[in-house]
Every structure is written in structure tokens, then in C-alpha cells.
């Protein structure tokens, strides 16, 4: 084998490896990327059935209900135009409270209830995820019009 051909093989081998890794990463990306929807988008039917996604909005005041002595908790997430009931049965984060922004990961069930497997609240009081802030602003301004 001439040095030239050997170098060509080298480059080809590396390219194949890089392409394979890139392809696998892209596949993992497509399968695992999570889109964000607010209650208005859900009401507009943008969510595919069974799709796992991020729900964001505000925890409606007075909506948090517990079954005493269990982890089962229900609350309503709203963007001031539409709202979605949420069910969750794990420990809630420290910053979760009524009237505060929240992001939850999960799926819609047949009755339109969002079954959350993860509820996130970032560890700063003042901090609101930008997409949630945008949803709430749009909701609030559309209501005043």
C-alpha cells in the first residue's frame, strides 16, 4: 500500500466514524427533544396524542389539592387564557407554589389531564423561565384587549 492510499484510507475511516457518531447523535436528538407548549397551544390542538412535552404556565391560585397523607397532588396550570389540570405524585420542588411559574414534563391522558412525571421550579424566586414569561405575557395582554 502506498503512503498516499494509506492516508486516503485513514481519512475515509475517520469520516465514516464521524458520520456514524453524528447520525446516532442526531437520532437520539430527534427522539428525545422535548417541545414546550402552554395551555393555549394545547387547547389549539397542537399536541400530538401520547407526545411527551413540557408544559409551562402559572399555578392557578387556589387550585392545589392534595389527598392528605399521600404524595398525590392536583393543580391547574394557566396562561390566563386557557388552563390545564395537572396530576403529579412525587415530591414537589421547593419553589413550587400557587401564583408562581412552573414547568412540568409529562403527557396528556385521555381526559385531557396532564400527567406530570417531573415538576421543575428553578432555585431563584425572581427567576422565571423565559418561555413561561412569554406565555404569561401573551395571555395577560390578550385578555386586556
Amino acid at each position: 500500500m502506498t503512503p498516499r492510499r494509506r492516508r486516503l484510507l485513514w481519512v475515509l475511516g475517520i469520516l465514516v466514524g464521524v458520520a456514524a457518531a453524528g447520525g446516532l447523535a442526531l437520532r437520539a436528538f430527534q427522539q428525545n427533544v422535548m417541545f414546550y407548549f402552554d395551555p393555549s397551544k394545547i387547547a389549539a390542538g397542537e399536541v400530538k396524542p401520547g407526545q411527551r412535552f413540557r408544559l409551562g404556565g402559572m399555578v392557578e391560585k387556589g387550585s392545589v389539592q392534595r389527598i392528605p397523607g399521600t404524595l398525590e397532588v392536583r393543580f391547574v396550570v394557566t396562561d390566563f387564557r386557557h388552563s390545564v389540570p395537572v396530576r403529579y405524585s412525587n415530591v414537589l420542588p421547593d419553589l413550587f407554589r400557587e401564583g408562581a411559574g412552573v414547568v412540568a414534563h409529562g403527557r396528556l391522558d385521555a381526559n385531557g389531564t396532564f400527567v406530570a412525571d417531573e415538576v421543575l421550579a428553578k432555585h431563584d424566586e425572581k427567576y422565571m423561565p423565559p418561555e413561561v414569561a412569554r406565555s404569561l405575557n401573551q395571555g395577560a395582554s390578550s385578555r386586556t384587549q
Binding site: 447523535a25 437520539a28 436528538f29 428525545n32 427533544v33 422535548m34 417541545f35 414546550y36 413540557r54
Partner: peptide
């Protein structure tokens, strides 16, 4: 608006 987490 999308997010990428540990599953990726």
C-alpha cells in the same frame, strides 16, 4: 421552544 435533556 424545545429542550434537550439527559435522554439525548
Amino acid at each position: 421552544t424545545l429542550s434537550v435533556g439527559p435522554p439525548y
